[in-house]
Amino acid sequence: MDLAWVRQHVRQAAAELGFGLVDQTKLVTAASELARNTLVHGGGGQVESTVLRTGAARGLRLTFADQGPGITDIERALADGYTSGGGLGLGLGGARRLVHEFSIDSRPGEGTTVTVICWTAGPPPPRRESR
C-alpha cells in the first residue's frame, strides 16, 4: 500500500463527491494515519474505498485491513495521549474524531480492520460507532 497514493485517492474521491476543503483535509488526515498504522503496525495490508449514497447524502467509506499482530487493548489504543511512537501524533482516537462513523475490529494474532465513513451533501445519517 502506498501512503501517497492513499492520500491522493481519498482527496480526489472526496472532492468528486462535493466535500469542502476542510472536510477533505479531515478525511485525508484520518486516512493517512490509518494507512500508516496498517503499514507500520500491521506489516502492510489493503484499503478499500466505496462511494455511498443515502437519499441526498453522499459519503465515502474507507476500510483499512491488515493481518498483523492485532491490538490487544483497543480502549487504550483509542485513548487520547496514547502513542506507539513515530506517527502524526493523531492516533486512532484522533482519526475517530475526524470522521462521522468509525469501527474497529482487531484480534491479537489475526489482524485489524478499521472502517471509517464521512458524509457530505445533505444531512448525514445518524452517527454510528462500533468496535
Rank of each mutant, 00 (worst) to 15 (best):
D23G: 12
D23S: 15
Q24A: 11
Q24Y: 08
Q24M: 13
Q24N: 12
Q24I: 11
T25F: 09
T25P: 04
T25N: 13
K26G: 00
K26M: 09
L27K: 00
V28C: 00
V28W: 04
V28Q: 09
T29E: 09
T29I: 10
A30V: 01
A30C: 05
A30I: 07
A31M: 03
A31G: 10
S32G: 14
S32C: 05
E33D: 05
E33P: 06
L34H: 05
L34S: 01
A35S: 15
A35L: 08
A35T: 09
A35Q: 04
R36W: 15
N37L: 02
N37H: 10
T38G: 04
T38W: 07
L39Q: 10
L39C: 03
L39P: 01
L39T: 08
L39I: 13
L39H: 05
V40R: 13
V40P: 07
H41A: 02
H41K: 06
H41I: 06
G42Y: 07
G44T: 06
G45M: 07
Q46F: 12
Q46I: 11
V47E: 00
E48K: 09
E48V: 11
L52I: 01
R53S: 14
R53K: 14
R53M: 06
T54R: 15
A57F: 04
R58V: 12
R58T: 11
R58Y: 04
G59Y: 00
G59D: 00
G59W: 02
